[in-house]
Design a protein around this nucleic acid. Structure first.
Lengths: 333, 333
DNA sequence: CTGAAAGCGCTAACAG
DNA sequence: CTGTTAGCGCTTTCAG
């Protein structure tokens, strides 16, 4: 790799001090430098193809213009969609994004926090996993700006950007009831994660039979979803609708219902969570809770930049979802 | 944000020079430092919760342990899957990943290259868009290590990790023919991108009627796919099979075939490209060309690290794909 | 108007 | 065994 040209090379080339070069290239001290020198320096910068060294700048400025993004898994469409929006929004503000996947593990999250801390990120946007309250407290103690996205802990006041999970779920159930469904099952993860439990609560608060909840272990999705669905269908009074609380659960549930040759929506209505091509392509396009991805990402960056600049701001942004109603949940003629 | 503790603070705390602290904390000069001092320094580092400043280290070492990843769009599942593998592999080697999305634009790619260059990334993994030969040459001129992933330019020798697109496509067509399909249409992008044109070539070399190729503009996917499919079906001798060369095209095509009430595979057999949940969930699970994602990501990182360490290595890795055969393409009984 | 010099945090060559 | 020092590339104060 060729040696890069520095401010020093330009200074030598023009015959001035490095300070002047820095001033000119950063448009500081406007007009207080002779037009002549200014022009020469700018020309030299171009001739030598000068590129500022952001690392040196960061060291000096104690600011890297870098955001650390920690998601559960960048390969999950939900995460990657958010990542894209955060990338754009960060870039518009001169920031870059370093990302990491936690695989829903608190210790991996801690690792990533440390890695990124060493790299002096100016702040974090994090979708925390279960049992990571300690990590949240750690960040607070450190005083590093961060915002929690999607996931949150009720007891810990912090910057949060999330959706109104309770209402998202109750809207879904409401819709199913309005379409004549009487026995509604709910499939969610076995978790302490607040955002998911709010979804379950939003649903069950509207339901009379609380046994119709399936809890899926995150590392046994296919197996547990299948068990739940089978149980729902073999009840004395089988379910006539199922609400899934995440995209992965919905997809797994649909595969299972397909295998069982259950007709949707005739026999069982389905409402899912999050948007995916698979829902469009399904023979009965799937009704789902649509999250405002763009706003989520934008607000997260906005809150973070605000926190970076103004220190101790703490703000919660709770966004509304939309129920996209399609064939999988409506009364068939 | 609290002030971070530096090597200097530890030195002051223990009453030694910063150099000693650096040695101890990096396990340099093993044993050549008294056990006593070593212990004291290590303890102080823990007590003060010292975290090394990777930025300072990078400036000194002229090495950031950072990889720049440029993909078309991190929100595309293909990109985000690769990103995840690259992340893991990079992390195993002590590297972090900064990413950027080019939106298939050469000028955005150039922007990202510059941004990441300023941030002193040690190397790049890039899925180049069309007409970015100049950018490739720029990187070569700079002497910055990089590897091209997925996409490549035939004339420019570089580190490349890609699949054997020609064979992937000809296998797909072969399979359709073996299953009795006589009139096979191909839908691809209107592009100069080599990897896609190889797919078309792999297909058409086995086909007699070369008019059955639909070219889709990347910014009019739905419209152009629909036109192509409609044309194929309204031929004097309509097609009995369609091969789509990317995941997005396949999904768009399936939606279109659904709208037209075309029965798959009875009326038209379908083979797609890349893996997605949507293919599993489709009423006739979709036959597709499966790329070796893990190997692609791993090899890319391997080649890059090799280039970073050994300078001017140039290597091409071409990986095989697998045709996953399912209902959408087999003769129905 | 211009420049010398200090210093961000760390490492490593060189001296004791 | 331990410490001094210079310097990575950049910014900025302060002094000409």
């Amino acid at each position: 790799m060729k040696k890069k040209v520095s401010i020093k090379d330009i200074a030598a080339h023009v015959g001035v001090s490095t300070a002047l070069v820095s001033y000119v290239l950063n448009n500081k001290k406007e007009g207080r430098i002779s037009k002549e020198v200014t022009a020469k320096i700018k020309q030299a910068a171009i001739d030598l193809n000068y590129q500022p060294n952001q690392i040196a700048r960061s060291l000096k400025a104690q600011k890297t213009l870098t955001i650390g993004l920690i998601v559960a898994d960048i390969a999950n469409p939900y995460s990657s969609q958010i990542a894209r929006i955060i990338e754009d929004e960060a870039q518009n503000n001169g920031y870059s994004v370093i990302f990491g996947s936690s695989d829903e593990s608190a210790s991996r999250t801690q690792d990533l926090i440390m890695r990124l801390l060493n790299r002096q990120v100016d702040g974090y946007i994090i979708a925390f996993p279960e049992y990571a309250e300690e990590q949240v407290q750690y960040l607070k103690r450190l005083g590093v700006p961060f915002v929690m996205i999607d996931r949150y802990y009720p007891g810990i006041p912090s910057n949060v950007v999330a959706i109104d999970n309770y209402h998202a779920a109750s809207n879904a159930i409401q819709h199913l009831k309005e379409n004549g469904r009487k026995r509604i099952g709910v499939v969610s993860y076995q978790t302490s994660l607040c955002h998911l439990n709010e979804r379950v609560k939003g649903a069950t608060d509207l339901l009379t039979d609380s046994t119709l909840v399936g809890e899926v272990r995150i590392d046994h999705i296919a197996e547990d979803v299948s068990n739940a669905v089978n149980r729902f269908l073999s009840e004395p009074k089988p379910v006539d609708a199922i609400f899934f609380t995440t995209n992965l659960l919905t997809i797994s549930g649909l595969k299972c219902l397909n295998n069982l040759n259950v007709k949707i929506p005739d026999q069982v209505a389905v409402v899912g969570f999050d948007e995916t091509d698979a829902f469009d392509l399904f023979y009965a396009p799937v009704t789902y809770v649509k999250q405002p991805m763009t706003e989520l990402g934008r607000e997260a960056v906005k809150l973070l930049l605000n926190a970076i600049e103004n220190g101790d701001s703490v703000e919660s942004v709770i966004l509304d979802t939309e129920l996209i109603i399609r064939q999988s949940s409506v009364i068939s003629k």
